[in-house]
Design a binder for these strands. Structure first.
Lengths: 331, 331
DNA sequence: TCTTGACAGGAAACCGGTTTCCGATTACAC
DNA sequence: GTGTAATCGGAAACCGGTTTCCTGTCAAGA
């Protein structure tokens, strides 16, 4: 049977209150008794039950991390950042993988309430009203990563997606391209979908290039979206010389799609991605892309959660730096 | 303030025992009272505290998953499998990322004990005696994935690494290659290190090829290990026509390393990897490799844990199928 | 010497559930 | 009408900690 605080108390000949005090340094205990208690604890390898402790302290040392897809490197790197920071402060990660389903997101929010996590880090895909409402009902320290929620004021950790897209497209325009296509994300995604598209528009505008609906294709960040999108766009616009993709996966799909039509990157067409995932640097041709610090974003989010838990002031809007990384896929 | 079972009891005019019975169907309750209780629960949006429940039931519905690196797709896919199966049965994942450090592995095992998880899935990197001992002390349902631990009899979920490596190298030999190098893993890794190397030896043996120490290079599964290893091997053995790498990352590194020396895959040299990570199919040239079902392994592990928790019999050794996927990097 | 205050440590309440034990009510058989 | 069994629901113990409250002891000050 597991040894409890009562066993320790009996064996040390003290009350369990005293044992608790020794464990937590919550009140002075004479050196003599303290040593006796510590000896017994050592001998029995006693480890207090965090479940019991949580019941009284109302703290679980658990942080719920809700993301759409663990196996997507974008999210797993964020998790890694969160974990490393959490670990430093004795917090643990309750992993919630929504698989891009709103139903699962909502279900997980219920679970997080039930488990009484100390904080929630939300990287949502379906930033819906329902999610927003449920989150409010849970009423725990919450941070959003790359997510926008209406009618809420949770701190947000992000990069300036619009500016980053602006820089990417400006780079293309400055390099002499004027027929620049874009494979953008879905409209319901305010971050990777809308913001990056806005940046694209703004850059065209700044370079006095007319926005052309025929140069646009909507994808869902999957390889095949890039593959099909690139093929469709180049067929409709043989004069297109550059293509901006809202993420690296679609960019690589685009390179493949164009290759299968006999076109070569960057000789025939320049391509820029977004995110700088590992493959981007390894792929042939290596991918020009926007790099964003996923691990750092995770760490920031965790730090904000800690501040919220400790009721320290936090900034509402933590914008991380991005960087345009020029490689072989553009010219 | 949070609403508790006592509040519900008072509002419904019953005892909290009755509320508990309604919640758990643990004893018959008259329809009239049941409805009254359910109404109050609905109205108040009451959700019982899983912390309090865990204290009495001694069950946390938490599964500790200990892996070396979340951001490695190999592991994140396993996690995905675990999560999807766990979710079906109302279990949750406590994520433990050891970052390949034994110290962190041991620390996390302490945390798992402290948190009183219902089960542990261990994909260890340092399968040391200390880990083994600590695991025994925790005394919880445990499953190993791709890990060997001395002096223990935990169920193991795995593929037949030796046979898979044997098939890969046999494929090369049957294709006419007889100078076949290998970039293998470290010797302290009984699975991806030793077993795959053994398979390599066995295949050479079966094709009556002499093992040549000069054709071997030890790496740690990193891209750069493959890059440097391939360059070193080809310089020492210009006659080498095929190279088997213990994982895909090293294989891709090898392709790059050889490319930078002016050699082309597969025209000048054939390369086989291991794992079939996403990049393998996308890379140019696409990689011939051994595919293993990571998600399925995760699911299996979780199923075994569930069986252990329910005290059902389990098989000690769950071997999943692998598959040789022939692509462009071999000829 | 007596009073006062500081301080260590114990008893007990409490956190929010589950479960055992028991009593009250009702139904049924004789 | 009485005895017995079945059934529903309440009181209380319990899970393993933390914390409040209180008591007894001892030292310092008057």
């Amino acid at each position: 049977m597991k040894v409890t605080i009562n066993d320790i108390a009996k064996m040390a000949g003290v009350s369990k209150a005293t044992v608790s005090r020794v464990l937590n340094d919550s009140k002075p205990v004479s050196e003599e008794i303290r040593q006796k208690v510590l000896d017994v604890i050592e001998k029995t390898e006693y480890q207090p039950s965090s479940v019991a402790r949580s019941l009284t302290t109302r703290k679980t040392k658990l942080i719920g991390v809700l993301i759409p897809d663990v196996s997507n490197p974008v999210f797993s790197k964020i998790i890694e950042g969160i974990e490393s920071e959490a670990n430093k402060h004795d917090y643990n990660i309750l992993l919630c993988n929504s698989r891009y389903s709103e139903e699962k997101e909502l279900k997980y929010l219920d679970i997080l309430k039930d488990k009484e996590v100390d904080g929630i880090i939300l990287n949502s895909y379906h930033a819906s009203d329902k999610v927003s409402k449920k989150l409010k009902a849970i009423d725990k320290p919450t941070v959003l990563i790359g997510t926008q929620l209406d009618q809420t004021t949770y701190p947000i950790v992000r990069i300036d997606n619009e500016k980053a897209a602006y820089e990417a497209v400006s780079f293309l325009a400055s390099s002499g391209h004027c027929k620049i296509g874009m494979i953008h994300g879905p409209k319901h995604d305010p971050i990777a979908g809308i913001a990056r598209f806005k940046g694209y528009c703004a850059a065209l505008d700044a370079h006095e290039i007319q926005l052309d609906e025929n140069l646009l294709y909507e994808g869902h960040f999957k390889l095949m979206d890039g593959y099909e999108g690139a093929q469709k766009l180049i067929k409709m616009n043989p004069e297109m010389t550059a293509l901006f993709c809202a993420n690296d996966e679609m960019a690589i799909g685009a390179i493949k799609g164009l290759f299968d039509l006999g076109m070569h990157v960057p000789d025939d067409i320049s391509i820029i991605g977004f995110d700088n995932i590992d493959i981007a640097g390894i792929y042939a041709p290596s991918l020009t892309t926007i790099s964003q610090p996923f691990r750092e974003k995770g760490k920031s989010a965790m730090r904000v959660i800690l501040s919220l838990i400790n009721r320290e002031p936090v900034s509402e809007n933590l914008v991380h730096d991005h960087e345009l990384i020029v490689r072989e896929s553009t010219q």
